[in-house]
């Protein structure tokens, strides 16, 4: 009957199989031209024209100037920090996000509903608040910092602090993409595997993991993409030392404050191209996930 989407990640757009809509006579419903026209107009005004402006601005630079602006040692160091920290943070979120989704779907424990609601906190809490709060916790006189610093672990105002902030902002993605897929997983498969003599670890690696792998990767890619662009939570905790703990978005702000618009735009274009690539990767992953879901049900 109806296309039954199950396990479409709440954080992602999930265009459905089109079979159903094709079968029904098209455009019986009014408002197609109006809504599509408005959608395209609004999209152009708010998103497409500004992005075009960004690309056009880089054309005022020669190719040599552009390369020089985006490959200066300070900018290169910022790429290394931004990508390295984002990758580590997304990996941590991959592991703990899977664990959290698993615990929330499979087990019962007191306060489960509160924990489930709290997972979305990084979406709802302004990044600047998260930034100053994490800094207050990890600074030398903070709740955690006062115990960690005597042990020689310095987190605030170091690249490690950047990773902590990025773990915070990216946390909900993996949980929220994996959760519905896990909820949807058929227990019968696990029962069959058990009846065939598989142990729990084998069942996880051979039955459950392949089923949730696409969702897991989608969540990982979303957390990574979010971390790369993140600004608010990081600048408070990073210390922002050039070459050491300066993220790429901060480089853009720095260039803007020196009225180096062309330089800021060049670095911004690099970041924008990277986000386009990540968006395409995420889209491909979601298509794969839907296909995997469709094949299994």
């Amino acid at each position: 009957m109806n296309a039954l989407i199950s396990g479409a990640p709440s954080a992602g757009l999930a265009p459905l199989p089109r079979a159903q809509a094709k079968r029904t006579p098209q455009r019986v419903l009014p408002g197609f031209k109006l809504t599509l026209g408005y959608t395209v107009l609004y999209l152009c005004l708010i998103v497409l024209i500004p992005i075009t402006a960004l690309f056009f601005k880089t054309f005022t630079l020669t190719w040599e100037q552009f390369v020089l602006a985006v490959t200066s040692p300070r900018v290169l160091a910022s790429y290394r920090l931004t990508f390295g920290a984002s990758l580590i943070a997304a990996l941590v979120n991959l592991v703990f996000g899977l664990l959290l989704a698993w615990v929330l779907v499979r087990y019962k424990f007191p306060g489960k509903k509160i924990v489930d609601a709290l997972v979305d906190l990084p979406f709802a809490l302004p990044t600047a608040v998260a930034g100053i709060s994490l800094t207050a916790l990890l600074a030398g006189n903070g709740w955690l910092g006062q115990y960690l610093e005597p042990m020689g672990i310095k987190l605030a105002f170091t690249p490690a602090g950047v990773v902590i902030a990025l773990i915070f902002v990216g946390m909900p993605f993996v949980v929220r993409t994996v959760q519905p897929v896990l909820e949807d997983a058929e227990k019968e498969l696990e029962e069959a595997a058990t009846a065939l003599g598989a142990n729990r670890l084998q069942i996880f690696t051979k039955v459950i993991f392949p089923h949730i792998a696409p969702a897991l990767l989608t969540g990982f890619a979303m957390a990574f993409a979010r971390a790369i662009g993140e600004y608010g939570s990081v600048i408070f905790i990073a210390g922002n030392m050039p070459m050491v703990s300066e993220i790429t978005p901060l480089i853009i702000i720095g260039k803007l404050e020196q009225y180096d618009y062309a330089g800021a735009t060049a670095v911004a274009v690099v970041m924008l191209l990277i986000s386009f690539i990540l968006l395409l990767v995420i889209n491909a992953l979601q298509t794969w996930q839907r296909k995997a879901m469709g094949a299994s049900s």
């Binding site: 500004p50 960004l54 662009g229 993140e230 600004y231 853009i252």
Partner: peptide
């Protein structure tokens, strides 16, 4: 997927 800083710059 656009960094907020890049959005502001646009």
């Amino acid at each position: 997927s656009v960094s907020p800083v890049v959005a502001g710059l646009m």
